[in-house]
Amino acid sequence: MRRTHWGRWIGVAFILLWTLIPIYWTINTSLQTDAQVTSRPANYLPPTPTLQNYAALLTADTDTAQAMRASIMNIVIECLAATIVTVLLSTLAAYAFARMRFRGRQVLFYAVLATMAFPAYTTLIPIYKIMSWLGLVNTYTGIVLVYVSGFLPLATWILYNYMSSLPRSIEEAATVDGASRLKVLWHVVVPLARPGIVSTAIITFLFAWGQFLFPLVLSSDLSTEPLTVAIAALQGRHTVPFSLMSAAGVLAIAIPAVIALLLNRYIVSGLLAGSVK
């Protein structure tokens, strides 16, 4: 058993180094001025650490800071809404695909999965047309709807795999006791599938968090524009403010981290629950 422990600690150390070196570099850049970054040799630590980039993004009385604050709120709302709707629908769909027999089940399932093969660029213009026709351009509903349609296939597939691997015996016992399908789903399957559901939620949330092209086209002002679009707008026509954008990047990774901390109990117990306790 000793050897497995060594293996694990080497693994964990590697995960941390691999993940954190570029993240550290982002934080390091964000604490300098543009005049200090990209010096030679590199500044491994900020020579004169400054929070001015964060102040410019968050607290200053400028259009930039106002855009940042509004876009942070937008991205949180859009991602949470998309996650909730996606997880709800995919749980229903995955259960139906995994446990019920109906005509066209397989064809339908593969059709859902196959939509993942379409590159985003192909669907951008048609979706924009549909949204403009429905009057949903520059609305939360429009953006959330597009996210849900985009992430539902993957979410359904993850949960389908998960539910398929659950033992049928408990469900069968419940059905014999006269519980309806939905009751079985809610009281038996969902608790058992919690790790799968939580990881689906995290995955959906992070997919939504990274979106740029669709919200760029579907939002036209600060009422819906998410953080990713606002960060791209920090670039000038001929200049890229490295340290300012790095600070914005740190905010963009800090917010999901804070949400994860707040929901820590549910996420960790959900994701890492299971039989290996």
Binding site: L89, L108, V148, P153
Partner: peptide, 16 residues
Amino acid sequence: LRIGAGVTALVAAGAA
């Protein structure tokens, strides 16, 4: 439930 699955398929296909 089947409608749930159907809606999933439709919404996803809408993308295409």
